[in-house]
């Protein structure tokens, strides 16, 4: 078993919607969850529903994901760089005929989650879970009260209920083990206060060997960073 396999989150199935505040890391989490589950043998599709952010979207990782056999549903190529909120009809189709695991990467805040309400008909009675990504090192989600406020706003805008929390504490390249531990303690407290399950926390793949995993009561999803600026290289996924 590879080092990464040891830390895999358990099998996730159905439709999983990833929400959270701007810059909480929804896209990086969506991509890495997709890769993790695909490597474990699941059939995985990812839909980019981020209609609000013009930079650093799932669509940028389309190539490495397709190489792994993960289908990425994004707006038409010709609109890829358009500053327009385009909801591809393919998304509704994807929801009607979901894969073993279908990950929907929503846009930031309540604004980004609003579009989910428009998809209510497509969701119908399917098994859908909505998970809130939290990075306590981001402004506006540095307190439990603020995270609960965002949860409330997203639920109102999407007309859906959040079912769980993903802890994504990080300072990108400068993340330390202590940051991961402190971030875990934060989302653990948030989970207790909100009575939402803590589904998993994330950790940069480079830090895994240093971490004391017995400290966590939930699985750890390794992050192989894909959304990088042009002077850095994304972690190669084809290992």
């Amino acid at each position: 078993m590879s080092a990464i396999g040891m830390y895999s989150v358990e099998q996730v199935t159905g439709i999983v919607i990833i929400v959270g505040n701007y810059g909480s890391g929804k896209t990086e989490v969506s991509i890495n969850l997709a890769v993790n589950q695909r490597r474990a043998g699941s059939e995985v599709k990812v839909a980019d529903l981020d209609l609000v952010n013009p930079y650093f979207r799932t669509r940028e990782a389309r190539k490495p994901l397709s190489d792994l056999g993960i289908e990425v549903v994004v707006p038409d190529e010709k609109y890829l760089q358009a500053d327009l909120p385009i909801l591809s009809p393919a998304i509704a189709g994807l929801i009607r005929r979901p894969s073993q695991l279908t990950i929907i990467d929503a846009g930031g805040n309540d604004v980004g989650a609003t579009v989910l309400a428009a998809l209510a008909d497509s969701f119908g009675k399917k098994h859908v879970r909505m998970l809130q990504v939290v990075n306590p090192f981001r402004p506006f989600t540095d307190t439990i009260e603020n995270c609960l406020k965002i949860r409330d706003e997203i639920e109102k805008a999407s007309k859906m209920t959040i079912n769980g929390i993903i802890g994504n504490a990080n300072l990108i390249d400068e993340t330390s083990s202590d940051d991961i531990y402190n971030g875990y303690d934060f989302v653990k407290a948030l989970s207790e206060k909100s009575r939402l399950a803590l589904n998993f926390v994330t950790a940069p793949v480079e830090l895994l060997s240093e971490l004391d995993l017995s400290r966590f009561s939930c699985p750890v999803l390794p992050i192989e960073r894909q959304l990088v600026p042009p002077w850095k290289k994304a972690v190669a996924l084809n290992r």
Binding site: G23, F137, P139
Partner: peptide, 14 residues
Amino acid sequence: GKILMKGNEAIGEA
């Protein structure tokens, strides 16, 4: 301590 910010947010805070 350090926090993670978008350039635009950091410019506003600065």
